[in-house]
């Protein structure tokens, strides 16, 4: 697991759910600035079973209000993640937004795929990778299995960090289970809805949006980081 950061990496934004709603506009505007583009690629793979087209439509309407244009990537299964056109599109992207849905399906689509490698390549060249709900969950490693709160293997764009979205309204027993099962060397961060935990290239993690982020470590008291503050966490991986 890489725990260091370096120049040249992009920005990762972990959103706690309820993405593309008005309270998110503060951090999404900032993300567009950081990306240096008004074009957003939306990956709807996690929503494959519940109208991926609607996810793209919602993103389109929302980003239009921010003066940006959305392109939906037709990636909903493993075959799509090995398609040259999709791989080429994400490789040169400056802003990729991973939509919410089924984390386990999303992981299966992306893990060890050419598409994911190309996305990491773009990230290494400075792209913004934003991910909400299931998307945020999958970028960590270990990864919270939403079905029971236990841990499984994630994609590891953010190694050593487990992400718990919808922290504000999740059932208490699920939070407790994830905290109880947390490994000693891992960190769990619960991110509230309409809130982003954003790590820029200078390795600072900043909480932005409507709620907060709560950091859990084994045998320590939880620490709440409110919107507008920074928090010390592991860093995103450096792509090779």
């Amino acid at each position: 697991m890489s725990q260091t950061s370096g120049a040249g990496t992009g920005t990762v934004a972990l959103v706690g759910g309820d993405e593309w709603t008005e309270p998110c506009s503060t951090f999404d505007t900032r993300l567009l600035e950081l990306a240096g583009t008004d074009e957003v690629l939306v990956l709807p793979a996690a929503a494959a079973f519940e109208h991926p087209d609607r996810a793209v439509e919602r993103a389109t309407r929302y980003f239009e209000t921010l003066g940006a244009k959305v392109t939906g990537l037709p990636v909903v299964n493993r075959r799509d993640a090995e398609t040259d056109a999709n791989i080429s599109a994400v490789r040169v992207a400056k802003f990729v937004y991973i939509a919410d849905g089924s984390p386990l399906h999303l992981r299966s689509v992306l893990k060890s795929s050419a598409f994911y490698d190309a996305m990491v390549y773009a990230f290494g060249r400075g792209a913004v990778i934003a991910a909400s709900g299931a998307g945020a969950t999958v970028l960590g490693d270990p990864m919270v299995d939403p079905r029971g709160g236990a841990y499984t293997v994630g994609l590891g764009l953010v190694p050593g960090l487990a992400i718990f979205p919808y922290h504000g309204r999740a059932a208490e027993h699920l939070r407790e289970r994830s905290v109880d099962l947390l490994a000693r060397d891992a960190v769990l961060v619960g991110i509230d809805e309409q809130t982003a935990l954003v790590r820029t290239a200078d390795a600072a993690w900043e909480v932005m949006g409507a709620g907060g982020a709560t950091v859990y470590r084994k045998d320590s008291k939880p620490k709440l980081a409110k919107s507008g503050t920074t928090v010390e966490l592991v860093t995103a991986a450096i792509p090779r």
Binding site: R58, A134, L174
Partner: peptide, 25 residues
């Protein structure tokens, strides 16, 4: 339903629970 749909939203798809622990949580 999708994650951004309101609780109780019913379009046409439905599911049958097969896992006890997962269904309970």
């Amino acid at each position: 339903k999708g994650p951004n749909d309101a609780p109780g939203t019913f379009d046409s798809q439905f599911f049958i629970v097969t896992g006890a622990q997962q269904g309970a949580t």
